[in-house]
Write a protein that binds this DNA or RNA. Sequence first.
RNA 1: GCCCGGGUGGUGGAACUGGUAGACACGCAGGACUUAAAAUCCUGUGCCUGUAGAGGGCGUGCGGGUUCAAUUCCCGCCCCGGGUACCA
Length: 937
Amino acid sequence: MEYNFREIEKKWQKYWLENRTFKAEIDYSRPKYYVLDMFPYPSGTGLHVGHPLGYIASDIYTRYKRLNGFNVLHPMGYDAFGLPAEQFAIQTGTHPAVTTGKNILRYREQLDKIGFSFDWDREVKTSDPAYYKWTQWTFIRLFKHWYNNKTQKAEPIDDLIRIFLKEGNGTIDAACTSEWQKDIQKKDPSFPEKWNGIFTADQWKSFTEKQQQEILMNYRLAYLSEAMVNWCPDLGTVLANDEVANGFSVRGGHPVERKLMRQWFLRITAYAQRLLDGLETIDFSESLKEMQRNWIGRSDGAEVVFPVKGTNFALDIFTTRPDTIFGATFMVIAPEHELAEIIATDDRLSAIKEYIDRVKNRSERERMTEVKKVSGEFTGAYCINPLNGKDIPIWVADYVLAGYGTGAIMAVPAHDSRDYEFAKHFGLPIVEVVSGGNISESSYDAKEGTLINSDFINGMEVQQAVKTVIRRIEEMNIGKGKVNYRLRDAIFSRQRYWGEPFPVYFRDGIACVLDESELPLVLPEVDTFLPTETGDPPLARAKNWVTSEGYPYETSTMPGFAGSSGYYLRYMDPRNDHEYFSKESNEYWQNVDLYIGGSEHATGHLIYSRFWNKFLFDIGLACKDEPYRKLINQGMIQGRSSIVYRLKGSNRFVSYGLRDQFDITEMHVDVNLVKDDVLDTDAFKKWRPDLADAEFILEEGNYICGFEVEKMSKSLHNVINPDDLIENYGADTLRLYEMFLGPLEQSKPWDTKGIEGVFRFIRKFRRLFHNHENEFFVSEEEPSAAELKILHKTIKKAREDIERFSFNTAVSSFMICVNELSDPKCCKRAILEPLCILVSPYAPHLAEELWEKLGNTVSISNAPFPVFNEEFVAEDTFRYPVSFNGKMRFQLDLSLDLSSDEVEKLVLQAEESQKWLKGNTPKKIIYVPKKIINIVI
RNA sequence: GCCCGGGUGGUGGAACUGGUAGACACGCAGGACUUAAAAUCCUGUGCCUGUAGAGGGCGUGCGGGUUCAAUUCCCGCCCCGGGUACCA
């Protein structure tokens, strides 16, 4: 065989493994570089061609950095806890650890075949107790810390207790659960009613231990709280906000409802501002940063107190438009608002109760679909506008959310589209206070214009009016400027089996964490993976799921993002059993220089992970406050589905071109039965039993299929398996082709046809090193100027392209180079050896093979990247495009050392020019050296 | 609705800071080698027109603008993909 890729690739994969070629160790003599791929979840279906795209890109970059003298950390491991293995366990009884172990083996096998340069000695699995020990450890640290808003960092809870003992909590500015004192008071009436939550040192000392712990819980960064959560009955668990889309679970698409439950939370909201600010310092795509910004959702505004007329109550409202306060014509509170029923007048009370009841009992699904339906009820009560004393009616409506701001708003229909809809629907007044719109048609929401009908801010521009009103309400002591975030604390409990157990037990109802020396708390065995009859999570089935003192352990487990939040740090020192990672390893590897993965993790993993890291930074563990310096989202590889056209209600199929003449239904057919859009009709009949007697209406003797570009998925029968391609073309060709397909970040359809071109290239490249008899042969002859020019042009391009992650154009430049060298059949070592290094990150197996044949005894992976030499590509002439009025008409070779006057003269003298000048004298001649000559007539 | 990203031949794509639009491939057509096929190699290939191995016109989603020159910059619009959705 001319090019025996099977043998070559097996040989070098074995060599790399046996020689630990890619083992990364701390080496102060070389600069470090850290390249990371997003943690894969080892699913049962294995990899399709879309999965390795990012891995190939990162591997190429890794190998490139090694060639440039960097000590590269490039690890791989598995996000091994997760729902699919557990769902499978429920169905079949197979332990998730068994399923996961099997899937990991399959993944590893597939990854190995592609020839990645991972340091496998650093492999981690989140389900391994030696790994999750540190996930549990971090949880304990979070539990034992609070967030000090004054210093803007996490501090030990013991320090907080010390302050409580000395001066109470009056001076503390902490990130804590809002209105926590109300919840505590509800549960424990020994706290004063209407307590504002402030206590003195003496009061603190007088609290029972249980009371103290209840209070501290509201300060901890990992805390237990009762809250409305996303409950998914089909999965039997609670889900985080990013795991829910449109009222359904992202994984599996099961309906999700709102439920009040006691859960563990992580106080990520404490870090909202830092998570936002950090985005300015990292190199992520603009769209990803924007997604994170929206998810964090900072809004600047003011909180204002509106007294409720004739009562001692007041409505606290949040608004981003304090400037429009004179246009507030009604107030709206959320149905869950505590004052809703209290302030309602007797005649309105039953209507209000009925409305609240109706709204509450709706499913999340109904709520979502009814979003555009305006509904609400008047409470009968009025607020007093604190700036002009006017009465404003108070309504209850579900378009105001209890969970955001204060759950109450001042409605300004003239300048808020939602308020406008509401006002129109219920016939409430609309008062224009910012000029610039036409409020008879729609609200004018823009934050620009001049204030009118607004007392002391009349004539001001919006920005100035906002500031003025905030200053005024602060002076009057009826409100203050305020920043709100949309980001919610992360729900950290899952009522599932296959996850990290919480290192938590309950002593007399008080949640306590284990001592760090007792970690890991190993996941116990259970008889079945289902919840108990009483609805408790599967861990409640475990025998002796209690501490040595007999206190019960927490029965929830941690969510998927727990194990993946800090994994990049563990890779630095993965076998350390007495600390998360050593200080030395962290100070050497620092953080990830290049992170490649899908954008679907924008609001999940990538936010949690940044939060987790900032916490570890605060407590002095991580030396960098951002985990990922640069991130690239690889685009999706879409499938190219093949479609056949079935005559309705029959087993006859009509070819693509004739389908319009019949009444047909479309059907996806397995792409493996189709070649160049021609269906293999015999294979089709054998595909499924019901198709055995299929008949075909052909065109020109063939059945032609239609096609559709869509998601690559099993159900659409368009999955391309990399194993098959490697079998037919080899891993080097697969690697090159995945890169050649198009820009890394763009989505693009997979089309197997194109792989032939790359396969041709790689054989042509190999042929440069072989003679006609297919024997390895290179000559020691001095290279010609032309050959050196080809080589150095390619060195330059290869480096520039890889530096900007333009792998597709780099592959093209190799093709051009090999085409140009093939013409004179260059076989000179001085050209081929550097070229071999250039290609090696992309096609490492063949490069190693040729490198060895060239007489090298050590792996090509640490060879020096060829140095570009300008001299070899220098030109003394340039072929100028000559344009007339901007249209290119002819080309002209000119020496580069001519003056612009000489150039102008020569151009005008050129024979071709006469034709275009048509006797005119040019008005102007533009001459841009090494670019263009343009003659304006 | 709002926020991002994107629209270039039959197809994937290239053109990096405004300077020869369509590199490199696929596909297609023709040719060489071969009994034949595969493999390999050569030639052509944006569209229209044409005296067809000359020449010309049009052309980067659409309509304008700036410029000697626009795929690239500006304004307005259309379409596709992603995110988000009563967040005040």
